[in-house]
Write a protein that binds this DNA or RNA. Sequence first.
DNA 1: CTTACGAAAGACAGACTGTCTCACGAAAAA
DNA 2: TTTTTCGTGAGACAGTCTGTCTTTCGTAAG
Lengths: 210, 210
Amino acid sequence: MNTRKYEQRLRADTAAENRRRILQAAYDRLREAPSEPLSLDKVANKARVARSTIYVIFESRAGLFDAVFRDLLDRAGFDRIVTAVAHHDAGEHLRGSLRAGAHVYAAERGVVRAIYSMAALHADALADTVRHDEVGRAEGMRHLAQRLADQNLLRAGITVQEATDILYVISSFDTFDLLFTGRGLAADAVADRLIAMAERALVHQVGQPR
Amino acid sequence: MNTRKYEQRLRADTAAENRRRILQAAYDRLREAPSEPLSLDKVANKARVARSTIYVIFESRAGLFDAVFRDLLDRAGFDRIVTAVAHHDAGEHLRGSLRAGAHVYAAERGVVRAIYSMAALHADALADTVRHDEVGRAEGMRHLAQRLADQNLLRAGITVQEATDILYVISSFDTFDLLFTGRGLAADAVADRLIAMAERALVHQVGQPR
DNA sequence: CTTACGAAAGACAGACTGTCTCACGAAAAA
DNA sequence: TTTTTCGTGAGACAGTCTGTCTTTCGTAAG
């Protein structure tokens, strides 16, 4: 039996719609109740789709949440925050991306927390994606640390390596959430704290010996 | 039917032993494979105990891990780190507890990560205990911040409130783990980073205007 | 018209939780 | 010694979940 050419165009649209509806349903559910177990049955019902369809499209439960996470990264532009700010002054760049990051984290807090926790508990595709994303963030922080060094903004005795480590901590979701959820600060207040920490820990002050 | 007094003495010992064996089995399993699902069946087998016995003793799955966490806190003495260091110099106290904490975290990394993730994902007894423990840590950090203030060690313009927030971040497991697992630093190197961050962010430097 | 294919529906096995019942055995009380 | 009490093992059971598979249907492309 020779398969003939077959390109579905109209069906591809509805297929893409289904995929999107499933992603949206899973995302909404994580948003509403980040600390409640989420079954694929619930996602399927919410998306008005058969549960088996989820498996056809996303392979597995982990594959679904992996896609949800990737989609979240795209929409929120986590990975673009650092480069997007793109201020010629590295100090402004630092402040701008910490503040922008804090607001993105605040908007997506529940979903990100749930996804990170799932990733920590399962060692699957989702865990790989989360780890990969963290590596990307580390590279971004290394770049920023290098820019700070190039512009002679680093405090005396701080290496780019050390600055990278510190920026990696301060720009993390966990650090944000310690202040946001743990200490009950508003997103802007968190940004203020983070910026203050970063500047005091890394940047030499006016009139301070270098 | 009138119930007569009944105090088991010898049986209480074996009961306590069972309880301990179950806790140990759960702890060992979390330690070996923190990122693998852990069923009560496995714990029961490992502890050579019927699964129903776990429910009799710990009420629920959450109750078991709650007990594992409490036991870990007791054994490792997380909550005693800050007060245990008890150096008359608040600066030494800060450095000592950060270093001690880093080593405890490093020793229990997998288990703590698994328990935190479970707590974030379920909103049960375990979540309550973890939250309560974090409140205790926050109080400890407030105490330390106050001591730093009393000894005139805080940088100019930093309130006790702000110092508490920053110490809360720096002394957290998440911050530790960002450097330990995320950046691949050894426990002592993490401690160095944390201490450097804390001192630069909070403590006024020698010869620096206050 | 015929073929291909996305999707729904649902059966199924297997794993897990939580509840319950029953029986056993050993220690404590009478 | 006899009786009572209680921790425990063993296991049945319902319910939920994942992951796989098969069957059927509708629709768009050829």
